[in-house]
Design a binder for these strands. Structure first.
Length: 583
RNA sequence: GUCCCCGUAGCUCAGCCGGAUAGAGCACAGGAUUCCUAAUCCUGGGGUCGCAGGUUCGAAUCCUGCCGGGGACGCCA
C-alpha cells in the first residue's frame, strides 16, 4: 500500500462529501492536491495542502475550508488526530496500529514490497551504453550502463513493461578504422613486422587478440587481397568479437540487455529510406545551405547545399543535415531510423541514456521522434556526466591514446559489481561523480555502499542469533503472523514510517527518471535502523532479543525482517546483491 | 554568438511538476562499548540556497535578466 496515495483518496472522498453537502462548489480541479509526509515529523504523519490549493477557486478562506475538511477527516478510519496549522495545512496523525499493520504487509510482500502500478503495464524502451564496438568498455561507459539499468529496474518496479536495449554503432567511418587497425594486427599475427601503429588507427593491444583470432580462422588468405575485399570481412569479424567482450563485461556488471539493434542492418534493410519517404511525404526535407556555426569555426568551412530535416519546426535550433557529401547518410539520419524502428515495435515512450557530451543532440533527436511519429511517441533523454576516477585521493589519469585507460572489467575486478553499481548512483546522473577506488572499499559511514550493506548484514545477524537462541520463535515468512502490539517505542514506529515511504520513493523516482533517489533512500533507511540498534545499547529493554519476553521478541524480529526486506527490495531495483554478513 | 547542465554549511552533496523553522555525510568539539558486529550511535556549533527582479497566500524549487563554472554547436559516433 502506498499510504500517501491511499489517504489522498480519503481526502478526495471527504471533498466529495463537502460538495454533496453544498459546502463546496461542484467541478473543482483537485489535480494540485497532495498528501505528503511533512518535513517536520512533529507536524504529524501526513499533511495535505488541499485547503490552500482549493480556497481561491472555491471562494473560501483557506483556514475556513481547512476546518470543514478537517471535520470530515476526523471520522476517517485509522486517523487519530487532525489539526489545521499554518496557512491552512491539514496535518493527520495515524493510529499506531495502522503503522504496525505495515510491517505485516511488508513481510507478506517480501522482495515485491514497493511495487507500484503507476506504469499500468505501459511499454517503455530504455536504451543505454550503446558504445561503439571499437574496443573494450571503460569506466566512462560504466555510469551510463548502471544508470540505464537501474532506471529500467526502477520503471519495472513502478509497473512499466520495460525493454532494455543496446544500439550497436557498427556503421560509419569508425568501424572501418577498426577494420584497418585489426588488419594490421592480423598481418602482425602472421609474422609481419608492422612497426609503430600509424596515427588515426586504434593502437590498443586488445586488437592483437582480434588479429590473432582472424589469422587462426582464415590463415594468410587476406594478405594479398584488395582492401575492398578484406575490409568487410575483417570489420564484421572484429565487431563480432568485440561485441562478445562488451556483452561479457556488461554481464559481469549485472547488465543484460535483451535487444541489440545493429545500425548497419537497419541501414541495409532500407530503414533510412523509409525515414526519408516519411519526411518527404510531410514536406519536412529540403535542400538548403546552413549558416556557418558561430564561435569556433571549422577551418574548412564553406557554404554548401545539403539535404536538411526541418528540425526547427519541432523545437530544434537549426535544421539538421541528413546526408554527408559523399552521399551516405549522417549518423543522425541513421539514428532517426532506429528511433522510428522502436516506435514501430510499439514503444510510444522511449528513454535514451547518453553521455553529457551528447547534450547538443537532445533537441534534434526529440524533434525527430516527434516528427516521425506525428507526436505519438515521446523521447526522454537522461544525460550522464563524467566519472573522475581516483585512488586514495589521487586522480587516475586516463588517456585512450596512450592506452592507459581503465577498463570496466578491471574496475569490476578491483571493487566488485555491487560496489560499482551503488557508487554510480550516489550522485544524480547529470552531476560529475568522483569514484575513489580506495574509499569505496572503506568500512565506514562515509561509504554509502558499506553503510547500507552493513544494515542488511546486521538484520541477518539478529535473525541468525534469534534462530539459535530462541529456536521456538517464528522465522522467515511466518513472522507476518505474529502480534505486533509490542512495537510501541518511538524509534520503532519512526522506522516503520520510514519504510512506508518506499512505495512513494519508487513512484517519484520513476516519474522523474532518477534512480539515484533509491540509493539515497536506502542510505536514510539504513541510518534509521542503525540508530534503533544502538538505542538498544543504551536501553536494554529495547534490544531485539529478549529471552524473557518471546512475544515482544517475535514482534521485533518481524520489524527487523521488514527492514531487511525493504533494503533488499531497494537493492534489487538498482541491481545490487544484498550481503548476508560483512567480513 | 546560440543552446544545454551546474552554482545550497569550511569540504562533498541531497532536497526542485512551490508548502510550514532548508537537510545529510565529512571535518571540528564533546559523549556512549560486560551487550544482537562501537565497522555503529547520540549531542553541539556552523547558511545573504550565486545576484537582482517577477508570479504566488507561500519561492532553494517556477519565469526573466545578469555573474561565475562546465559542455555542445555542417558531412564524429
Amino acid at each position: 500500500m502506498n499510504v500517501f496515495n491511499y489517504f489522498r483518496g480519503v481526502v478526495e472522498t471527504a471533498l466529495d462529501e463537502l460538495v454533496a453537502a453544498g459546502r463546496l462548489p461542484k467541478g473543482l480541479d483537485t489535480a494540485k492536491v497532495t498528501v505528503e509526509p511533512p518535513r517536520d515529523p512533529s507536524h504529524g504523519d501526513l499533511s495535505t495542502n488541499a485547503a490552500m490549493v482549493l480556497a481561491k477557486p472555491a471562494g473560501l478562506k483557506p483556514r475556513e475550508l481547512a476546518e470543514g475538511l478537517a471535520e470530515r477527516l476526523r471520522g476517517a478510519g485509522s486517523v487519530e488526530t487532525v489539526e489545521v496549522a499554518g496557512p491552512g495545512f491539514i496535518n493527520l496523525r495515524l493510529a499506531d496500529d495502522f503503522w504496525r499493520a505495515r510491517v505485516a504487509e511488508i513481510l507478506r510482500a517480501g522482495l515485491h514490497y514497493g511495487r507500484s502500478d503507476l506504469g499500468a503495464g505501459q511499454k517503455v524502451n530504455v536504451e543505454y551504453v550503446s558504445a561503439n564496438p571499437t574496443g573494450p568498455l571503460t569506466v566512462g561507459h560504466a555510469r551510463g550502463a548502471v544508470v540505464g539499468d537501474a532506471l529500467a529496474g526502477l520503471l519495472e518496479k513502478a509497473g512499466f513493461a520495460v525493454a532494455r536495449e543496446y544500439y550497436i554503432n557498427d556503421a560509419g567511418a569508425q568501424v572501418d578504422t577498426l577494420a584497418r587497425s585489426a588488419y594490421l594486427r592480423y598481418r602482425e599475427a602472421l609474422g609481419e613486422e608492422i612497426g609503430e601503429i600509424p596515427p588515426g588507427m586504434y593502437p590498443g593491444d586488445y586488437l592483437k587478440e582480434v588479429g590473432g583470432a582472424l589469422a587462426e580462422r582464415d590463415g594468410p588468405r587476406w594478405l594479398e587481397a584488395d582492401e575492398t575485399d578484406w575490409l568487410p570481412v575483417v570489420r564484421g569479424f572484429a565487431i563480432d568479437l568485440l561485441m562478445r567482450q562488451v556483452k561479457r563485461d556488461l554481464h559481469a556488471l549485472g547488465v543484460n540487455q535483451s535487444v541489440f539493434t545493429s545500425e548497419r542492418s537497419l541501414v541495409e534493410a532500407g530503414a533510412v529510406d523509409e525515414v526519408m519517404r516519411t519526411l518527404e511525404a510531410r514536406d519536412l526535407v529540403y535542400i538548403g545551405v546552413l549558416e556557418p556555426p558561430k564561435g569556433k569555426k571549422p577551418e574548412d568551412w564553406e557554404p554548401r547545399p545539403q539535404t536538411l530535416f526541418r528540425a526547427t519546426a519541432f523545437g530544434d535550433d537549426v535544421d539538421r543535415p541528413l546526408r554527408k557529401s559523399d552521399g551516405s547518410w549522417t549518423y543522425f539520419a541513421n539514428d532517426m531510423a532506429y528511433h522510428l524502428d522502436k516506435f514501430r515495435r510499439g514503444f510510444h515512450r522511449q528513454i535514451d541514456v547518453w553521455g553529457a557530451d551528447h547534450g547538443g543532440y537532445v533537441k534534434r533527436m526529440q524533434a525527430a521522434v516527434r516528427a516521425l511519429t506525428e507526436e505519438q511517441a515521446r523521447l526522454e533523454i537522461v544525460l550522464c556526466q563524467l566519472v573522475k576516477l581516483s585512488k586514495g585521493g589521487i586522480e587516475v589519469k586516463m588517456s585512450k591514446r596512450s592506452g592507459s585507460f581503465v577498463t570496466l572489467r578491471e574496475l569490476i575486478e578491483e571493487v566488485g559489481a555491487g560496489v560499482v553499481r551503488f557508487v554510480m548512483l550516489t550522485r544524480k546522473s547529470d552531476a560529475q561523480l568522483d569514484f575513489d577506488l580506495e574509499k569505496v572499499l572503506e568500512q565506514s559511514r562515509d561509504n554509502p555502499v558499506f553503510y547500507v550493506q552493513y544494515a542488511h548484514a546486521r538484520c541477518r545477524s539478529v535473525l541468525r542469533h534469534a534462530a539459535e537462541a530462541m529456536p521456538h520463535l517464528p522465522q522467515g515468512p511466518t513472522l507476518a503472523q505474529v502480534g505486533l502490539a509490542g512495537l510501541t517505542d518511538s524509534a520503532e514506529l519512526a522506522l516503520i514510517k520510514q519504510m512506508a515511504h518506499w512505495p512513494r520513493v519508487v513512484e517519484q523516482a520513476a516519474f522523474a527518471c532518477e534512480p539515484h533517489r533509491v540509493a539515497f533512500y536506502l542510505y536514510d533507511l539504513a541510518s534509521g535502523f542503525h540508530a534503533l540498534w544502538t538505542k538498544g545499547k543504551d536501553d536494554a529493554s529495547l534490544r531485539f532479543l529478549l529471552e524473557e519476553d518471546p512475544e515482544l521478541t517475535a514482534a521485533r524480529l518481524a520489524l527487523v525482517e521488514a527492514v531487511r526486506a525493504t533494503i533488499a527490495s531497494g537493492l534489487q531495483v538498482i541491481g545490487v546483491q544484498p550481503v548476508e554478513e560483512l567480513r
